[in-house]
Design a protein around this nucleic acid. Structure first.
Lengths: 203, 203
DNA sequence: GCAAAAATGGACCTGCAAGTCCAAAAACGG
DNA sequence: CCGTTTTTGGACTTGCAGGTCCATTTTTGC
C-alpha cells in the first residue's frame, strides 16, 4: 500500500530521520534548515521530498516520534521495574545521568514549544509520551504499595502525575539555568516523601 | 542620554510591547510576524524600527521582560506573604486559577524554547524570573519554619527548588495535555508534604 | 511662531529557505 | 538482459518576512 521502499530507500529514510534529529538537538527546531539536514546526512533536496512528501512538517513529525520513543528507551530497564527502593534509586540515577549528559540540547523542548504549534500531530506525540511515562511511574508506585513499601492509601495516579510534572520542570530548569539541582531536588524529595508515608502504616 | 522619548512616543512604545506580547501569547513566538504586530497595534514598520532599532530581536526581548514580570505580579500579594497555611492555599488557588484561565497560551513557553536560543539576553530574563520565584518560595518556607509550621530541619532552598520545578512541569503538561491535573497534584501533594514534617517536631 | 528633534507612514530592497521539477542513475522483477 | 519503478542530484521558482530609507507630519522648547 503505502510501501514502495527498497532496502536502500529504507536506509536512506532512517539516515535522514536520525540526522535531522541530531540537527534538531544541536540547533533547535526552528533553526534547522533543510539544507543543514542535507549536509549532515549527505542527501539531496530531491530525496528529502521523496521520503517526506509533506516537506519539513512531515520530517519533523518523524523526528518527534523518534525522539519521544528514545526518551523512554533511555530509562529502561529501570522504568519498567520500579519494584524495590534500590530500583527506584537506580532509575533516579539514570535520569540524572542522562539529562546531565544531554545538557542544553533537548529534543522535548522543541517538541513542546514549537513543533506542537506547527504540526497538530506533534501534540499527540508529546501527549502520548507523557501518558506512557506517567503510566510506568504509576505502575511502579502500585507495585510498591502491593509490597507495603508505600502507603496503600496513597492515590498512585496522582502521585505519579506530581512526580512526572516535577521531572519535566526539573528538565526545563536544567535547560534554562544549566544546573541539575532542580531535577535532583524533585527526585530525592519526592521519593523520600513516597517512602515516608509507609513505614508503620501512617495514622 | 538614551532618552529621547516624548510622552506620545512612550505611549506608542508601550502599546507596541503590549500588543506584541498579546500576539506572542496567541500565535507563539516564531509565528509572530512584525506585520501582525503592526496590524494589532495600529503602527507602521517605521515606528517598530524607531523604537526597537535591533528589530524583532529587541522587541521580543522587551516582550520577554514584560511577560516575565507579569508572571510574578499575577501571584501577588500571595507569593510574598506565605506566612500561614491559609495563605499558602490562597497562593495555590491563585496559581490554578491563573493557569487555568491562560490555558494553552503561554508566554513562558515561548520564552524558554525559542527566544532563549535566539536572544542570549532572553536566557537571562528567564533565569532571573526563576531565581526570583524560587527565592519568594524559599522565604515562605523559612517563615513557616520560624513559626514551627514546617520542620526546621528541612532544607528550605531545596524544597523550594523542587516545588518550583513541579510548578513549571505542571504548567508544561497543561500546555501539552490541556489538563490542569498535574499542576494541582504537584501543589497539593507538595504542600501536604511540607505540612507533614512539622506537626509535633518529627523525630 | 520657528527651528530642531521626534514620530509616523509606507514604498522598496534583499536574502533566504521551502518547495517544484525533471532528467539521470541505480535497483528491481521477471 | 530489458522494461519498469525507485532513488538520486541539483537547478530553478516563489513567497515571504525582516530590514532599509526617506519624505511627511507632529511635537517640543524657546
Amino acid at each position: 500500500m503505502t510501501r514502495a521502499l527498497t532496502r536502500k530507500g529504507e536506509a536512506t529514510r532512517a539516515r535522514i530521520v536520525a540526522g535531522a534529529a541530531a540537527e534538531v538537538r544541536e540547533r533547535g527546531v526552528d533553526e534547522v534548515r533543510l539544507e543543514d539536514v542535507m549536509a549532515h546526512t549527505g542527501t539531496s533536496k530531491g530525496q528529502l521530498f521523496h521520503y517526506f512528501p509533506d516537506g519539513k512538517e512531515g520530517l519533523l513529525l518523524a523526528v518527534a516520534q523518534h525522539e519521544a520513543d528514545q526518551v523512554l528507551i533511555d530509562q529502561e530497564p529501570m522504568l519498567s521495574n520500579l519494584t524495590s527502593w534500590p530500583a527506584w534509586f537506580a532509575w533516579r540515577d539514570r535520569l540524572i545521568e542522562r539529562y546531565l549528559a544531554q545538557g542544553v540540547k533537548c529534543p522535548l523542548n522543541g517538541l513542546l514549544g514549537q513543533t506542537g504549534r506547527r504540526a497538530p500531530g506533534a501534540q499527540a506525540i508529546v501527549t502520548g509520551l507523557m501518558w506512557r511515562w506517567q503510566k510506568a511511574i504509576t505502575e511502579g508506585i502500585r507495585h510498591m504499595q502491593s509490597t507495603g513499601d508505600i502507603d496503600p492509601e496513597l492515590d498512585a495516579d496522582r502521585a505519579a502525575a506530581a512526580l512526572l510534572a516535577g521531572i519535566q520542570g526539573g528538565v526545563l530548569l536544567l535547560l534554562s539555568t544549566g544546573k541539575i539541582d532542580h531535577l535532583e531536588a524533585v527526585l530525592d524529595l519526592t521519593i523520600d516523601s513516597l517512602r515516608a508515608g509507609a513505614r508503620t502504616g501512617g495514622s
